[in-house]
Amino acid sequence: MDDEIPSGGLLSRTIINIPLVFWRTDAGNIAALENRCCHWGAKLSLGRVENGGDRIRCPYHGLLFDRTGQCVSAPAQERVPARAKVRSFPVIERHRWVRIWMADPAQILDTR
């Protein structure tokens, strides 16, 4: 349910054996990423939400990921490799239910 995802906080869940982290942006939208940092596999759910909820920081080395899963900042590095990313998942809220698309995002169906 939508009330399980706190404003400014993180929610960890596993769906079909994939660990996920959910959070809300300041605009109230829900974001979802795989709950493993691409660097050492640390749980992103142990990190923190930053930049108005649009980004999440890994608790281990401090990598900063945007809602698409792309690493946008790394401590002590000017350039972040384009391959530094985690898998993101499309999420919608309908009637207080949170729905996540676990398959290929290119194949998502419009259920409106």
Rank of each mutant, 00 (worst) to 15 (best):
M1I: 08
M1V: 12
M1W: 11
D2Q: 12
D2T: 10
D3N: 11
D3L: 07
G9D: 02
L10T: 05
L11I: 00
R13Q: 07
T14Y: 03
T14D: 06
T14F: 02
I16E: 11
N17I: 01
L20R: 00
V21P: 00
T25Q: 00
T25H: 02
G28V: 00
N29K: 06
I30N: 00
A32M: 04
E34F: 06
N35Q: 10
C38M: 08
H39L: 04
W40E: 14
W40Y: 15
G41D: 09
A42V: 09
K43N: 05
L44D: 01
R48D: 13
R48Y: 14
R48I: 07
V49C: 02
V49M: 01
V49H: 03
E50L: 05
N51Y: 10
G53R: 00
R55E: 11
R55M: 07
R57I: 04
R57E: 10
C58H: 04
P59R: 10
Y60R: 08
L63N: 04
L64I: 07
L64N: 09
R67P: 03
T68I: 12
G69P: 07
C71D: 05
C71I: 02
A74W: 06
A76N: 14
A76M: 14
A76I: 12
E78P: 07
E78C: 11
R79N: 11
R79E: 12
P81W: 14
A82M: 13
A82W: 15
A82V: 14
R83C: 15
A84T: 07
A84R: 07
A84K: 08
A84S: 15
K85D: 13
V86L: 05
V86D: 02
S88H: 15
S88F: 14
S88N: 14
S88Q: 05
F89W: 06
P90V: 02
P90Y: 03
P90L: 05
V91M: 06
H95P: 00
H95A: 13
I100C: 03
W101R: 00
M102S: 04
D104V: 01
P105N: 03
A106Y: 12
A106Q: 14
Q107H: 13
D110G: 11
T111K: 15
R112N: 15
